[in-house]
Design a protein around this nucleic acid. Structure first.
Lengths: 327, 327
DNA sequence: TTGTAAGCGTTATCAA
DNA sequence: TTGATAACGCTTACAA
């Protein structure tokens, strides 16, 4: 087994006390340059590296760890967020502990508790559906937290999209192209983003005096396959829609698969852009935003709060825009 | 500030010694049920949670942390790997510290050192190009490590794809379709996977007595844009190819973009599948494999080694297959 | 069955 | 400018 040198070893080799080694390691002032050189040499020779766990054991010392809980890392949206977070964290010498809640609130809670046991300095979370009392400062032991994509507890910073506005613009664009029978396929309406996007869809119809048709509103689809089936049902209607608004990237993929299978290409507006959207042979409207930037913003909010814990909770909106892809 | 209760607090409240609390927390036998109940009650009341950093400070105690260094988390291939790793780690109550090397060996080395300072129990790494002496057991302080996607140091476990065979099969399939002028666009030939895939391409041509044409072999492209430009150059040739073999997902995307721009659709075989490949209006051959499974395998190898550090290094090959997408 | 005391590797206090 | 010593929160010999 490989022995790992400690400050004691360095101190012994350099012929100084352990405190002096600590001073050198931490670049404290008031160290005699000569002593410093001796110590540095010993550090080099032994290949000493400070044990971060031991250092952060002492209260008030940061652990250099952040927690990130998302619902599902296999969704490119969340992995893009994770990228942004990591980028900022890495710049500051922090590491990120990532974990997936699978959209399960009790699992999310357990993960958060485990993360707290590891002494994370801050938490970023995409809160799963449900009550979020366990995100209260008390239960988080005053560890700063940022909610991502969905609002968390009232006293948390958050980074959100303008979901409603994006949906409204996308559906309005469809209406502008002359569509009146516009279907909507959505994920979980219980999820904040889903609810907001539905509201945007409804608002667009209302603004143009188009009545909502229950047959065209399909809610509660988890994943591509369910969305594909929903599109099938729309195709089978006596009077099918001429356009479809999908509320997230997974749904959009399912819908496109169904259209390909039926070889009937309706107009599509999708909340969420996706890779290769521009390669489609039909034009498609997408609500686009910068997910990596969302992650960066969240990490930055967190670091600001670590530096200044007193400021009141802030919500940061990431802009969305509607663009045409494919075609 | 929120005070975080310690075992001492629990002990005081329950009227027992700290050691008894420790016994209860760790489910040690030989605790009087009554005493245990008292302690559990105190733990509940105070909301006590063991401090993992303090626990793992003692040598021989696992930290419950694993390190993962990939080259670029924004590539879906690597994030899929991370998913698989996390899945296995989470099952065992481990957390994963992720970091991106950006394909820079010195940065990779610094990240590994930082990870070691955090007392990770094991490391998984997609080694960047370059010399990997710093992946020797000595410099890793005998922390078990698994190389992913590319071989690391001789004494490491590794999880690899059968790159050469996949490339050979893909190019052979193109030849089977009657193609003789088959171009190849690749990323970095210095990267192990790139080199292997090039070798597979060359082997396929050789087996069919097709001579390699230097003009059709474009190597050293980083990212989509460079690949797109390479495809442009191929189109401008007096005698352009009839088919293209691309050695990774980024290259493929660039090539498809170029084809769309020129509206000239050559046959394509791609190493790496990609989302929406099946939505393309042309058929495309892809070398497919399960990246999530690669992550799972790597994590499993790591846990095996944690349990039994003595076994010799193992290499695990993840199967690849050639399938037709799109069309 | 329970408790005392030492120690893990670091930082902080305070005295030299 | 340096060093002895006591924490930090926990586990583990060893003792009671």
């Amino acid at each position: 087994m490989n022995y790992r040198p400690t400050m004691h070893d360095v101190a012994r080799l350099a012929g100084v006390s352990i405190k002096t080694v600590s001073r050198v390691v931490n670049n404290e002032p008031r160290v005699n340059p000569e002593t410093g050189a001796k110590v540095s040499k010993a550090i080099q020779e032994l290949g000493f590296r400070r044990n971060e766990q031991a250092r952060s054991l002492r209260p008030g010392q940061a652990s250099g760890l952040l927690g990130l809980v998302t619902s599902d890392m296999s969704n490119p949206f969340y992995s893009a967020i994770a990228c942004g977070i990591e980028e900022v964290a890495q710049q500051r010498g922090y590491f990120v502990l990532t974990a997936s809640s699978e959209e399960d609130a009790s699992r999310e809670q357990r993960l958060i508790e485990s993360l707290l046991q590891h002494n994370i300095d801050g938490l970023m979370i995409v809160p799963a559906v449900g009550d979020h009392q366990y995100l209260s400062p008390t239960l988080l032991r005053d560890v700063p937290a940022v909610a991502l994509d969905r609002p968390g507890h009232a006293q948390m910073d958050s980074v959100l999209l303008d979901n409603r506005e994006g949906a409204l613009q996308a559906v309005t664009a469809l209406i502008g192209e002359g569509h009146r029978r516009i279907a909507m396929i959505d994920g979980y309406p219980q999820v904040y983003t889903g609810a907001e996007r539905i509201a945007g869809y409804a608002a667009a119809l209302r603004q143009h005096q188009i009545e909502q048709v229950p047959d065209l509103i399909m809610t509660g689809h988890h994943g591509e396959l369910q969305a594909e089936a929903a599109m099938d049902r729309l195709f089978r209607l006596g009077d099918p829609p001429t356009a479809v608004f999908t509320t997230n990237n997974r749904i959009t993929l399912g819908v496109l698969r169904a259209m390909k299978r039926w070889n009937r290409w309706l107009a599509v507006a999708s909340f969420d852009d996706f890779e290769l959207a521009d390669m489609l042979h039909i034009p498609i409207l997408v609500v686009r935003y910068n997910a990596v930037e969302m992650g960066r913003k969240a990490a930055e909010l967190l670091f600001h709060r670590l530096e200044d814990p007193q400021t009141t909770a802030r919500t940061c909106y990431v802009p969305v825009e509607v663009v045409i892809r494919g075609g």
